[in-house]
């Protein structure tokens, strides 16, 4: 440990002021680990020296870099899987019934980090049998970190990143090689619109049908959690859906939400929205035993899907209106 209690308190205050994220006692290790490479790259001998400079000079660029380094979260494609299976099997069919007058669905990935979540949502939408050319699906992806948004917009992922959580059939269908990396194909990435947004401040957004706010609330204190949930509820349609992280809940924070189980996925809905109709024969899950192939057959998750050689995503290419082309 090289940082003092005073230096940690300074950093915790800085992060709290700029993001409302609460770095409680015991997070000294996080500050040490996350700031080590920033300190090295910026030419400081250690993290303590980096913090000392910011305390003395108030260097805005360094302050922003420190906050970004401490608020960037690990993510992976189809993380936790259950929400994506619920989206595919229950929520999209439900919304396709309820939004038939407008043929418009809006999904928000709040705290999208490096983009794996919004692109996982986009792949789920593009592959969904009910989403045809009549539908406009917009996926809004927001994060407080400009650096993360730039990475997400590039839609470019390393081999290590695509190995995490992404089923191989989806890799070959929705990605193309980009030197040693992989890049999301235009038919998928054009569905996603990125925007910088601080959840801890008031914001204006269009009506949202589904919110993914996963593993974000855990970083806030109770007061801020309540405010964030209130803001989210203001833009969520009365029959909309809210996904939180596995260790998060609205219980005790916002009684206007109620918990609903969709298979093994937990989702929160504005009170009174009820439980949607759960199809007995829904679309196949993203992954799992049901997606395993039988003897001598092509894997079922590849069957009927365009393979490389035909244009990536060609079965739906152009059939979903990307934002700005409505």
């Amino acid at each position: 440990m090289t940082i003092t209690a005073g230096a940690f308190a300074f950093i915790a205050d800085l992060v709290k002021q700029m993001t409302a994220i609460n770095l409680g006692p015991g997070k000294e290790y996080l500050v040490e680990n996350r700031l080590a490479s920033l300190a090295r790259d910026a030419g400081f001998r250690d993290v303590a020296a980096l913090i000392g400079r910011v305390q003395l000079s108030g260097d805005d660029r360094l302050r922003r870099q420190i906050v970004e380094a401490l608020t960037t979260n690990e993510t992976s494609f189809f993380r936790d899987r259950d929400p994506f299976n619920a989206l595919r099997q229950v929520i999209i069919p439900d919304l396709c019934r309820k939004r038939v007058a407008t043929h418009r669905i809006t999904i928000w990935s709040a705290g999208c980090s490096s983009g794996q979540e919004p692109y996982s949502i986009a792949m789920t939408v593009v592959d969904h049998p009910l989403i045809n050319s009549e539908w406009t699906v917009e996926i809004l992806a927001t994060d407080i970190s400009q650096e993360m948004l730039e990475k997400a917009k590039s839609a470019r992922y390393s081999q290590l990143e695509v190995n995490r959580g992404l089923p191989a059939p989806l890799l070959v269908r929705h990605f193309e090689r980009c030197e040693t990396d992989w890049r999301v194909v235009p038919a998928v990435r054009n569905l996603v619109r990125f925007q910088q947004l601080n959840l801890a401040e008031d914001f204006e957004l269009p009506w949202i049908d589904v919110v993914f706010l996963r593993n974000v609330l855990i970083y806030f204190d109770t007061t801020t959690k309540i405010e964030v949930l209130r803001r989210v509820r203001r833009v969520l349609r009365p029959d909309g859906y809210l996904f939180l992280g596995g260790s998060e809940t609205t219980l005790g924070l916002d009684d206007e939400f109620e918990r609903v189980m969709l298979g093994s996925a937990t989702v929160y809905r504005p009170r009174g929205a009820g439980v949607p109709e759960i199809p007995t024969e829904g679309a196949a899950p993203i992954a799992g035993p049901a997606a395993r192939p039988g003897l001598g057959s092509r894997p079922s998750s590849l069957a009927g899907s365009p393979l490389p050689g035909s244009p990536p995503g060609s079965s739906l290419a152009g059939s979903i209106n990307p934002p700005g082309r409505r």
Binding site: P167, P169, L171, V172, P293, P299
Partner: peptide
């Protein structure tokens, strides 16, 4: 995958 591998 076409030959019958489940994952890669």
């Amino acid at each position: 995958l076409a030959a019958g591998a489940h994952e890669y």
